[in-house]
Design a binder for these strands. Structure first.
Length: 582
RNA sequence: GCCAAAGUGGCUCAGGGGCAGAGCAGCUCACUCGUAAUGAGCAGGUCCUCGGUUCGAAUCCGAGCUUUGGCUCCA
């Protein structure tokens, strides 16, 4: 865990205190409200209530006004240590508070904080007085539902989220940041840049890639394929559906049935859309006997899977019901495991960095209580993962007991251009499937042994990865990924022929290029190209035609006129080759 | 799945118990233009769906679907 700075600690205290002030304001409005918990969180705070009626957005204004009023009363936050019995009396009728009280371990101090009109069961700490809170440095952001103690079986409470800072300026910066996030929203950009769409009438959570989006996807996939070939992988292709035998054997029907699309009955068998590719790769493995000499096997597939994600959790491209995993399965001997893991991690980092992600953190998850597999194998695998991370000099955290039931794993998270973390790569050992499918290889001593099976995805899902890329670049893809690398704008109709000739020349270079032959004026065409965030817009007229040249307008607005066409071609090749942003 | 809000033309949105609106995009015509929107005209809607209330519903009520913000979940 990173250590908090003094300033962060201070903000946390402010936010926590702000939550108390909000609770007081809400109780002023609804004296019968039940109050639950209200912690400080990243950038702000929330408080959960059980209210007599649903809250409207307009209610937030009134709560805000009341909070400002409470802050300006300059009330001291008074801490008291009280007995359990007294606490129980104090919070009589507050069922959630009483439940929290009971959960405090025997022997631990029970404390309350009071800032005038409101007393909360709370460990603290808080600011000394409400005057330390800045009434112009907070904002209530949203109303949401949240289960009491985060458990689905518990009642749903009303949660109010707010953000709080030590000065109005910090608040403004944060609100600007939120605006920035909105501008980068991949759903909005996907619409504006004509990249993809979702159609409720055709099925929620299923993605339609438009031609412009498909060009980016092809660039991603072409790169992915060629790098996999260079790195010792073989491509495989497997079906999209499989009979129930497969899913019974793999255990998916036992554990994850509710997340699978329901079966299609055919020839008195049930067929299921695949939620994972692993069992199919295993079928290929099982097709022949394997010697230790065949291993390691590295089989990759851009495999499209379907999962019945709950309706409420669908989100643009980030959480969908049909998506393509950039999947691979490695089968290896115990001796090969170390080398394979090291190589997978190195390859992952190389791929992520190629797409422009430079800040990468690793998360190592170890054996959970409920799990399968020999302890020896878990230990060996976990150690191999740890060594690989350390070998790469990566910053990492260990999530003890956070692994899947079938094996330990490394997840890689990247930081995007505005500091948000996204999980992309995952490298997981699997001690379950080799057992269930009884995978073996014949070792040099003639004995059949269980191979190690490693499951890995570098980008995660192509859909989600595309969404992350889109937000990271705010739609301004570097040329190698750009759906339209070059757009040609002829100054007037007289130069359409020259424009078309340049277009055809550029297309032969392999560039994604188009020519705007509409009868709009030149200015409108330039604007249209800029709006599509194309890296290069070429303006062609009399001067260019005379000189076999192009005038380049870069995405940022920079202009270079009269560049010889051959020079421009070389420049674009270089930019694509380097994968750099322009 | 749960809590809340929303759903009006391809897009962004206004309106709102009594004739369905705008801008952009599209189409047509004119303009042939030198670095972020030329002008005019035309076309385009089951106001999410199904029920109910009403003389009359896009508008009010109910249910469903979908989306959004969260919660839960994410092999």
């Amino acid at each position: 865990m990173a250590e908090n700075t003094v300033a962060e600690d201070r903000l946390e205290v402010i936010r926590h205190s702000m939550a108390h002030v909000m609770a007081e304001a809400v109780l002023e409005m609804f004296p019968d409200a039940q109050i639950a918990i209200g912690p400080a969180i990243e950038n702000g705070f929330y408080y959960d209530f059980d209210l007599p009626r649903p809250l409207q957005t307009e209610d937030l204004d009134e709560i805000t006004d009341r909070m400002k009023n409470i802050i300006s009363r300059d009330k001291t936050f008074e801490r008291r240590v009280i007995s359990r019995a007294e606490a129980a009396r104090l919070f009589a009728g507050q069922k959630y508070k009483l439940e929290l009280l009971e959960a405090i371990p025997e022997g631990e101090e029970v404390s309350t904080y009071n800032q005038g009109g409101f007393t909360d069961l709370c460990r603290g700490p808080h600011v000394k007085s409400t005057k330390e809170l800045n009434k112009d440095a907070f904002k209530l952001l949203s109303i949401a539902g949240a289960y009491w103690r985060g458990k689905e079986s518990n009642p749903m409470l009303t949660r109010i989220y707010g953000t709080a800072w030590s000065s109005p300026k910090e608040l403004r910066l944060y609100l600007d940041h939120l605006e920035d996030i909105k501008k980068r929203d991949h759903r909005k950009l996907g619409q504006e840049l004509d990249l993809f769409s979702l159609h409720e009438e055709a099925g929620p959570g299923l993605v339609y890639w438009h031609p412009r989006g498909a060009r980016v996807r092809m660039a991603i996939e072409d790169f992915w394929r060629s790098e996999h070939c260079k790195n010792g992988y073989e491509m495989v292709f497997t079906p999209h559906v499989g009979k129930s035998w497969l899913w019974e054997t793999s255990g998916h029907l036992g554990f994850y049935k509710e997340s699978m699309y329901p079966p299609m009955e055919m020839d008195s068998s049930d067929y299921y859309a695949k939620p994972m590719n692993c069992p199919f790769h295993i079928m290929i493995y099982q097709n022949s006997k394997h010697s230790y000499k065949d291993l390691p096997l590295r089989w990759c597939e851009l495999g499209t899977v379907y999962r019945y994600e709950k309706a409420g959790s669908l989100h643009g491209l980030m959480r969908v019901r049909g998506f393509t995993q950039d999947d691979a399965h490695l089968f290896c001997t115990p001796e090969q495991m170390d080398g394979e893991i090291t190589e997978v991690l190195r390859f992952s980092l190389y791929m992520l960095r190629s797409f422009g992600f430079t800040e990468i953190r690793a998360y190592l998850s170890t054996r959970p209580e409920k799990s399968v597999g020999e302890q020896e194998r878990w230990d060996a695998a976990t150690e191999a993962l740890k060594r690989a991370i350390e070998n790469e000099g990566l910053a990492y955290e260990v999530d003890e007991g956070g692994g899947a039931f079938y094996g330990p794993k490394i997840d890689l998270k990247i930081k995007d251009a505005i500091g948000r973390e996204w999980q992309l790569s995952t490298v997981q050992f699997d001690f379950n499937l080799p057992e269930r499918f009884k995978l073996v290889f014949t070792d040099r001593d003639g004995v059949e042994k269980r191979p190690y099976m490693i499951h890995r995805a570098l980008l995660g899902s192509i859909e989600r990865f595309f969404g992350v890329l889109l937000e990271h670049y705010a739609g301004s893809f570097p040329p190698w990924l750009s759906p339209e690398q070059i757009r040609i704008v002829p100054v007037a109709e007289n130069f359409f022929d020259y424009a078309k000739a340049v277009e055809s020349r550029l297309r032969k270079e392999g560039f994604r290029v188009s020519c705007d032959l509409s009868n709009d004026r030149m200015n409108a065409k330039i604007r249209a190209s800029q709006m599509m965030k194309n890296p290069y817009t070429l303006i062609l007229g009399e001067k260019e035609q005379q000189a076999d040249a192009v005038s380049v307008r870069y995405r940022g607005g920079k202009q270079v006129n009269g560049v010889p066409t051959a020079d421009f071609i070389a420049e674009v090749h270089k930019a694509i080759e380097s994968k750099a942003q322009v």
